[in-house]
């Protein structure tokens, strides 16, 4: 490959600075003593300390984690089972189900949120009592997570050699044993990555939660209410923490990946 021209290098630097300068500015000003957003007046950890004393943020974080975990587990099981069922269906019914599953993915999030809210409102009008809260939030999160599991697991199932399943039966497995001993280990990476996608989407979701949570506050909803107040440097601190957490997770995962790659290539040679 030729060396990259100066122009393209400059262009890449420009785009990446566009993407990262705002984040960097936030990180810098999270240590700013005053509330000013343009003058750095002095160094302080106060905003971080405030953040960890902020009950609203902490309980919202707790709720987000619980919702993400429960929703992801349920969505993963539901989606994996669905993939297996869909896999053995005829082409026509498979296409219909896949297309419907695509709806929450391609529909604007606000539509998904609003439509679920309408459903819950109708249920509420029928049955009365308190409907919005943990259950509606969970249902909403599971609903928009399941398709991602299916889209992860289905291709893996299709890739899998049917003979693998037949070989298990041939060697004496009952169909149930064959599933747990052969099929599941084989599709496990896809199931797991589906689970991870669910976790991140669930933690990150604001719009759908906003319409289905009632008075509950997940972390993104809490962040939203903080941004409504004009000046709150705690947000800077929170952003910085989140960025660092995400960065370390990605670095960790990448390091694992490349280590595994090295190991397997070493074994191969």
């Amino acid at each position: 490959m030729k060396k990259m021209s100066f122009l393209s290098k400059a262009y890449m630097v420009l785009i990446f600075s566009f993407m990262y300068v705002p984040i960097a500015v936030m990180a810098v000003f999270s240590f700013n003593e005053s509330k000013s957003r343009s003058n750095f007046t002095g160094f302080t950890f106060d905003w971080y300390i405030n953040l960890f004393r902020n009950d609203m943020i902490l309980s919202a974080l707790g709720l987000s984690l619980v919702i993400a975990l429960v929703a992801s587990v349920i969505a993963t099981i539901l989606g994996t089972m669905a993939s297996i069922g869909i896999h053995s269906m005829h082409r026509a019914s498979r296409t219909v189900i896949m297309n419907i599953s695509y709806l929450p993915v391609i529909n604007p999030e606000i539509i998904t949120g609003v439509s679920m809210m309408l459903l819950f409102v109708v249920v509420k009008n029928w049955m009365g009592g308190k409907v919005f809260g943990m259950p509606t939030l969970l249902i909403a999160h599971i609903t928009f997570c399941v398709p991602y599991v299916i889209f992860n697991v289905s291709p893996k199932l299709r890739q899998m050699d049917v003979r693998m399943w037949e070989a298990a039966l041939d060697l004496g497995c009952t169909p149930v044993q064959a599933f747990f001993k052969v099929v599941l280990p084989e599709i496990m990476p896809a199931v797991f990555s589906g689970f991870l996608i669910c976790l991140t989407y669930s933690i990150d979701d604001f719009i759908i939660s906003y319409f289905t949570s009632g008075t509950l506050q997940t972390l993104p909803i809490a962040i939203y209410s903080m941004t409504r107040k004009k000046v709150s440097p705690e947000i800077n601190a929170l952003s910085t923490i989140m960025f660092v957490v995400i960065l370390s997770i990605i670095l960790f995962v990448n390091a694992q990946d490349s280590r595994r790659q090295k190991k397997s290539s070493a074994r191969r040679s």
Binding site: R163, M164, A167, L169, D170, E186
Partner: peptide
């Protein structure tokens, strides 16, 4: 009779070894 009850075994096309 299902395959797992038969006294025959199969060597599959492309082997179908369990990769895990």
């Amino acid at each position: 009779m299902p395959p797992y009850k038969r006294q025959v075994n199969t060597v599959f096309q492309k082997y179908a070894l369990f990769p895990h």
